[in-house]
Amino acid sequence: MNETIKLEIQNMTKLYKNGDGVKNINLKVRQGELMTLLGPSGCGKTTILRTIGGFLECNAGAILIDGKDIADLPPEKRPTAMVFQSYNLWPHMTVFDNLAFGLKLRKVPKAEIADRILDVLNLVKMPGTEKKYPNQMSGGQQQRIAIARSLLLKPEVLLLDEPFSALDAKIRMQMREELRKIQTDLDITVVFVTHDQEEAMALSDSTVVMNKGSIEQIGSPYEVYHHPASRYVADFIGEMNFIETQAGMHTAVRPENIRVEKGGGGDLEGQVRNIMMLGHYTEMVVQTRFGIVKAFVSGSEADLFKRGEHVALYFSDSRQFSE
Results as ranks from 00 to 15, higher is better:
R307W: 05
P134D: 11
A247Y: 09
Q320R: 12
V286W: 04
L268E: 06
P228C: 07
T129E: 08
H310C: 01
E301C: 06
Q287Y: 02
R254T: 07
A295V: 04
P255C: 02
F296M: 13
K107P: 12
M173C: 11
S86E: 15
Q197A: 09
K170A: 14
Q197H: 11
N2H: 09
I5F: 03
M210E: 04
M126P: 08
L152N: 07
L121R: 11
D205S: 12
L89F: 06
T13C: 08
L203R: 07
G39K: 03
I48L: 10
D97V: 04
E239F: 08
Y133M: 15
Y314N: 13
H280G: 03
H227G: 00
E323C: 07
P75G: 00
R254P: 04
V209Q: 10
K154N: 15
D196G: 04
D168C: 06
C43L: 02
I65M: 09
A81M: 05
G248A: 10
K6H: 07
M175E: 12
M277G: 11
P79D: 13
I52D: 01
P127V: 09
S318I: 00
V233R: 01
L73P: 00
N18H: 03
A146R: 07
N274K: 14
G42F: 06
L49Y: 03
P155W: 10
V22C: 01
P255I: 01
V22F: 01
N11P: 01
L105R: 15
N59W: 03
R319T: 12
L89P: 07
K125S: 15
F55A: 02
G128C: 13
P163L: 03
E244W: 02
Q197K: 09
V253T: 11
F55N: 01
